[in-house]
Write a protein that binds this DNA or RNA. Structure first.
Lengths: 200, 200
DNA sequence: GTCTATAGGCCGATAGAC
DNA sequence: GTCTATCGGCCTATAGAC
């Protein structure tokens, strides 16, 4: 048991409530709806407390982003370690949860420089994680990647997963089953055959 | 020569200036920076004129979107008619110009319902255009698409082009050359061979 | 840590003179 | 069509009492 200061506990509770409210608003109404007043209202607090705990709104966004990022990175690392890293990466990247927030933070980054720098860093880290997971998958299963190098596969998964999320956000799903079927086939393709992965 | 009313000319000139300013701000500072005051300032007008000519901001966004959409659709239709539709579609979708605005409108759509409906419509129309262009390419060159059906190719091009644009916007370009090389190979793949396009 | 109060700013939109 | 004037609203952030 770590030493639990009652004051520290309360402090964390309030901070968590604020971050939760921030995330919820961002998810449901978009980042532009994240204002100190709205966040406070949803958390059952006064808006000034948002500033007391997080300073400027920039800092609030930053900390909310970091918390989300940390969660996801940990989740993805576990997926990489699991038995079928490639499939798990695809499942996570094409799933609803999380990917919608990524798009929202990406939009917000246009107007908040700090957030942009933050995103670039984690984006790079995630890309490297994806690639290493895919490399591992290829090695473990003795697959000759052919044209579908780990870098290409990583980009494809990110691009397709992100676009699926964007279009779902619009309420548009034409061709989704088709592209998902394609990815399934790509992920399930026979192993140890250097012919089928080559484009020329 | 069509009848040119001097008043009508002036009216169009002002409207065009406002729409140009709107687009410029959206491109450089993001959609959130598009306010009646800022638009007017950049166009050398008073903010009230924005309302006079376009009514609400929703309507301004809508008309700016439509103008942009019309331009692009015409451009793409010409590309489809051209000699190498598939390659042209890829070039347009992966190019800088235009694709950044798409992302911005997509973000804006989260908070402006009218814009969302508008985007869904044109998104669907563009998807159909892509697919028909790719079908034509396959037929003209006697290509057996295999797993890379027109729907899959269209989605891939949109997803990869859009992601490239997003990442470029962040100042992030790791792996871009690699994925572009992959697409080049995919577009150049030998024709009339039903083997190399199959995943299994 | 949480409250009240408040400064100071930008926003959308309208009314009415010219 | 374009101007001046202006209302009402929501925002970030800070100061100071408790």
């Amino acid at each position: 048991m770590k030493p639990v200061d009652r004051r520290e506990q309360d402090r964390l509770k309030t901070r968590t409530a604020i971050l939760d409210a921030t995330e919820e608003i961002m998810r449901k109404e978009g980042y532009a709806a994240v204002t100190s007043r709205r966040v406070a209202e949803r958390a059952g607090l006064k808006s000034q407390l948002v500033h007391y705990h997080f300073g400027t709104m920039d800092e609030l966004f930053q900390e909310a982003y970091r918390r989300n990022d940390k969660r996801f990175f940990d989740k993805y690392v576990k997926a990489i370690i699991a038995r079928e890293p490639l499939r798990k990466i695809w499942e996570l990247s094409s799933s609803h949860e999380g990917m919608d927030l990524v798009a929202e933070y990406l939009s917000a980054a246009n107007h908040r420089k700090i957030l942009r720098d933050e995103i670039v860093q984690t984006w790079s880290r995630f890309r490297a994680l994806y690639i290493s997971g895919i490399e591992k998958h290829y090695e473990d299963n003795n697959i000759d990647a052919g044209d579908f190098t780990p870098g290409v596969m990583a980009f494809l998964i990110i691009a397709i997963g992100g676009t699926l999320a964007n279009e779902r956000g619009l309420g548009f799903s034409e061709g989704h089953e088709e592209i998902i079927g394609f990815m399934e086939a790509l992920l399930n393709k026979p192993r140890g055959n250097d012919r089928i992965n080559r484009l020329s």
